[in-house]
Simulated scan of single mutants.
Amino acid sequence: MCSSTGTATATVQIKNERARVTEWRFANRGDNTGWHRHDYDYVVVPLFDGTLEIDLGNGERVTAQMQNGIPYYREFGTEHDVINANDFECAFVEIELLEPKPS
């Protein structure tokens, strides 16, 4: 993921030629990833029950309900800023699939 500077903390846990696993931790309400575009397909595993706000960059903001341990998948090209909409610390694990899709 290529990102502008946000206030959330990104900790790369695994990085090799096939995958990159990053924990994103948001200490406070309003902490954010910074505007970014995903260069790879990815899976997100929330580590909390709560809400994230997604800034889509066109003046539109949506909310996304997260459930602890329930993953979701997105394809490359997604552009957004992810914002903590909770009054508590929250985190998720992002798994980027660095290999191309099989044809």
Results as ranks from 00 to 15, higher is better:
residue 98 L to V: 10
residue 64 A to E: 13
residue 17 E to V: 14
residue 80 H to I: 04
residue 43 V to Y: 00
residue 6 G to V: 07
residue 27 A to L: 05
residue 54 I to S: 03
residue 17 E to Y: 06
residue 28 N to G: 08
residue 27 A to W: 00
residue 61 R to C: 11
residue 85 A to T: 10
residue 86 N to F: 05
residue 82 V to G: 00
residue 91 A to V: 01
residue 100 P to N: 12
residue 41 D to M: 01
residue 1 M to L: 13
residue 20 R to G: 07
residue 64 A to V: 09
residue 7 T to V: 07
residue 47 L to F: 05
residue 50 G to S: 08
residue 56 L to K: 12
residue 30 G to D: 04
residue 63 T to M: 10
residue 81 D to P: 00
residue 86 N to W: 04
residue 72 Y to H: 06
residue 60 E to P: 03
residue 78 T to Q: 13
residue 103 S to T: 12
residue 98 L to P: 06
residue 83 I to H: 01
residue 25 R to G: 09
residue 101 K to L: 13
residue 94 E to G: 06
residue 51 T to W: 14
residue 23 E to C: 10
residue 76 F to H: 15
residue 47 L to R: 12
residue 44 V to K: 03
residue 14 I to W: 06
residue 29 R to D: 02
residue 21 V to Y: 00
residue 71 P to N: 06
residue 87 D to G: 15
residue 79 E to R: 14
residue 81 D to R: 06
residue 15 K to H: 13
residue 31 D to S: 09
residue 54 I to Y: 03
residue 23 E to M: 11
residue 74 R to I: 00
residue 22 T to R: 02
residue 54 I to K: 01
residue 33 T to I: 05
residue 99 E to G: 11
residue 71 P to G: 04
residue 16 N to Y: 00
residue 8 A to P: 03
residue 87 D to T: 08
residue 16 N to K: 02
residue 49 D to R: 09
residue 28 N to V: 05
residue 19 A to N: 06
residue 4 S to N: 14
residue 76 F to G: 10
residue 78 T to N: 11
residue 59 G to Y: 06
residue 11 T to K: 15
residue 94 E to S: 14
residue 48 F to C: 04
residue 54 I to P: 00
residue 52 L to K: 04
residue 39 D to G: 09
residue 31 D to V: 07
residue 52 L to A: 06
residue 55 D to G: 02
residue 21 V to A: 10
residue 102 P to G: 09
residue 81 D to V: 05
residue 89 E to D: 07
residue 4 S to Y: 13
residue 33 T to N: 03
residue 15 K to N: 15
residue 68 N to T: 09
residue 34 G to K: 01
residue 29 R to I: 05
residue 14 I to F: 06
residue 19 A to M: 12
residue 63 T to Q: 13
residue 10 A to W: 09
residue 79 E to M: 11
residue 83 I to L: 00
residue 89 E to I: 03
residue 69 G to H: 07
residue 57 G to V: 02
residue 65 Q to R: 12
residue 64 A to Q: 14
residue 25 R to D: 07
residue 76 F to N: 12
residue 5 T to A: 13
residue 34 G to Q: 02
residue 70 I to V: 15
residue 11 T to H: 12
residue 83 I to F: 01
residue 45 V to L: 05
residue 39 D to Q: 11
residue 19 A to H: 02
residue 62 V to R: 10
residue 19 A to D: 01
residue 73 Y to C: 08
residue 26 F to N: 02
residue 99 E to N: 11
residue 45 V to A: 01
residue 64 A to L: 14
residue 6 G to M: 04
residue 88 F to Q: 14
residue 69 G to C: 09
residue 18 R to G: 09
residue 15 K to I: 11
residue 61 R to W: 06
residue 30 G to M: 05
residue 7 T to M: 04
residue 77 G to K: 11
residue 19 A to Q: 09
residue 12 V to H: 07
residue 90 C to T: 15
residue 12 V to K: 11
residue 82 V to Y: 01
residue 101 K to N: 12
